[in-house]
């Protein structure tokens, strides 16, 4: 795996005068083999930054580099992504195996001209994310939210990415399933030395998987540093606010603001 680097990345929607800047001059590095957690409230530009990295949102300025080379805007990207909504992220008309196999690049096992059967390779990838073998032949409608997110993860891995971006992949899941998906993410990351940008608004979740934490607000990164440092001794006022708002078990919320 290798490094993902944002250099002055800016995304502006709408016209110059009336538009608004969703991502504002962001410099951020996801070093090889590490997980960078990106936190911030919704609307702060986390997802737009992610989509800009894979060419789904147009960069107004700046660039995104994977291993020093700009990420192409067409064809297979070296950066693969897992999305938030488990119900929209898989084609209901394709079996799990077909969805996963489709992402395998040419020349790789299971890909076109890659030898090895597509199904076998899809099975292998499904196994990697802890899905039972039979899932490969089933349609997404049969799967739970957690299982779908694992399929999406397998599909991302099938693309032989240099970097994986996970955008709120557990936000739509119940705690019971969330744990299973996070365990898979953590195990895979350690096993394959994945470089990963892990986006979530849940601080406890980000803390659990990340080595580095970046805090985003209104399109800008306001703080970035080693996870323990940022969460234990936040340097920015907004990070402190976020940390204070995390619901803690056993605490009682009082009415006064």
């Amino acid at each position: 795996m290798s490094e993902l680097r944002f250099e002055g990345a800016t995304v502006r929607f709408g016209s110059r005068r009336h538009g608004h800047v969703a991502v504002d001059d962001v410099d951020l590095v996801v070093p090889s083999g590490t997980v960078v957690g990106l936190v911030g409230e919704s609307g702060s530009g986390k997802s737009t930054l992610a989509r800009a990295a894979v060419g789904l949102a147009p960069l107004t300025a700046g660039r995104v580099l994977a291993d020093g080379r700009p990420v192409p805007r067409h064809g297979r990207r070296p950066v693969q992504m897992v999305f938030q909504d488990p119900f929209a992220s898989l084609d209901p008309r394709m079996t799990v195996g077909e969805s996963v196999a489709e992402a395998i690049p040419r020349g790789f096992p299971g890909g076109r001209a890659g030898g090895a059967s597509r199904r076998a390779e899809a099975s292998r990838l499904a196994g990697l994310v802890g899905l039972p073998d039979g899932v490969v032949d089933s349609y997404p409608a049969r799967l739970s939210g957690g299982q779908r997110q694992r399929v999406a993860l397998a599909r991302a891995l099938a693309g032989r990415p240099q970097v994986i971006i996970a955008d709120e992949i557990t936000s739509a899941l119940d705690v019971s399933t969330q744990g299973a998906v996070l365990n898979v993410v953590r195990d895979l990351q350690r096993e394959l030395r994945l470089s990963m940008l892990f986006i979530s608004h849940n601080l406890a979740v980000v803390r659990y998987v990340s080595d580095v934490v970046a805090v985003m607000r209104a399109g800008q990164i306001v703080e970035c540093g080693p996870a323990e440092r940022v969460l234990a001794a936040p340097g920015h006022e907004y990070t402190r606010e976020l940390l204070a708002a995390v619901p803690r078990p056993g605490s009682v919320l009082t009415a006064e603001d």
């Binding site: 989509r51 894979v54 060419g55 789904l56 064809g75 297979r76 990207r77 950066v79 693969q80 992504m81 999305f83 938030q84 909504d85 929209a88 992220s89 898989l90 084609d91 008309r93 394709m94 969805s99 489709e102 992402a103 690049p105 999406a152 599909r155 991302a156 099938a158 693309g159």
Partner: peptide, 22 residues
């Protein structure tokens, strides 16, 4: 506009195939 199309695009699936398969 759905995520699975986005995922397929990122994976390098061609436009024609996007249309016919998805």
């Amino acid at each position: 506009g759905l995520d699975y199309i986005a995922a397929a695009r990122i994976a390098g699936v061609s436009r024609v195939r996007l249309l016919t398969r998805h």
